[in-house]
Simulated assay, not measured.
Amino acid sequence: MKPPDIQITKATGERDTYDREKLRGSLLRSGAKEHDAERVIDEVESQLRDGMSTRKIYRRAFQALRRDSVFAASRYQLKQAVMELGPSGYPFERFIGAVMESMGYQTSVGRIVSGRCVTHELDVIGRKNGEIALVECKFRNQAGSKTDVRVPLYFHARFLDVAEAWKQDQGRTWREMGLDLPGYLPGKGEEPVFKPWIITNAKFTEDAVRYSQCAGISLMGWDYPGHRTLLTVIEEAQLMPLTLLQKLSRRDKTILLEEGVTTCRELYQNEIIMEKVGIDRSRRRQTMKELEGVLGLVR
């Protein structure tokens, strides 16, 4: 059976035809050279079997790529690395705050905001020009997970409660409502444009997309929308999560996440924090070298 005829099993359990170009694209985006990508593809295809899972295919590609380039292999694990920002959702919320900042927003993470009826904890608040983005982050650490219509239904109600509180102007200031951001405190007469966002590292169901389009909710998923996905924003802004680093142990990563460090760039710019959390000198040196490769930097 030739590779183009082989049926593979996606994380959702659905069957699909193996696509050589999709595998090639993912390898090249990770920074692999053309000849390395071809070698990896040949090796993977020599082991392909009908019904093989995409997880197993990409794991074998990662192992083959790692023999040539640790740096490219690290970036190739990007989706898995984002899923490892858990198990709690807070590191993911901080990560999404960085994503929004790369898109030009001034952000604040984990804010308590007053609505007309009740108070709400919002994952991320962002401001850009006159827009106030209220962001719901949905973290998933299981491959194949989807964000269904219940999420936009629930968040839409919360969003309307916050927007209505400002619209009715019950004598509260932005600071009293919890909507103030550092360096930005508009006057009471200023009319902001509130915009609801839902950002996830998973996929959206069709109903979730349909409802959000109808309700005016902006969505960003791992591969949605086609022109500006979470993946493309991460890659364009070089926002690599620190969890993709191979030189750090799981314990090291957990401690660094607890210290509020979520991206490779943050760690590179704050090398001393590795010493603070007990990472020995040798591994700090190895990690800094890996960071330079992952970020495309030269010290």
Rank of each mutant, 00 (worst) to 15 (best):
E121H: 00
R116T: 05
E38N: 14
G226F: 04
R66H: 12
K188Y: 10
T263K: 01
A32P: 00
G97K: 09
H120V: 14
V40C: 01
Y58M: 01
M220I: 03
K247V: 10
G89C: 10
P241F: 06
I125W: 00
S108C: 11
R49C: 04
R265A: 01
L219P: 00
E136V: 07
M83K: 11
C137V: 09
K146R: 15
D36A: 12
E164I: 11
R67T: 15
T263E: 00
I279E: 06
L181T: 06
A72K: 09
D42N: 14
K188D: 03
Q170R: 13
R284A: 10
K128W: 01
R116K: 15
T107I: 09
K146L: 03
Q142R: 15
R210S: 15
Q170K: 12
G183V: 10
I279N: 03
Q213H: 07
G110A: 10
R75V: 03
G13H: 02
Y184C: 09
K146D: 08
Y268H: 05
Q168G: 03
Q213D: 09
L244R: 08
F71N: 12
T173R: 04
L291D: 01
E235Y: 00
V162A: 00
G115N: 00
G31W: 05
E38H: 07
S26T: 08
V82R: 09
K146I: 10
V261N: 06
A157H: 04
E14K: 13
Q170S: 08
A133L: 13
L267S: 08
G187V: 03
E275R: 13
D123C: 12
V82W: 11
V135G: 04
F62N: 05
S218W: 00
G86W: 14
K138L: 06
E275L: 13
E190N: 04
Q213Y: 01
G110S: 15
E275S: 10
F155D: 02
Q106P: 06
Q142Y: 14
D252L: 08
V135T: 03
A163C: 13
D42I: 14
M52L: 02
V135W: 07
E14C: 02
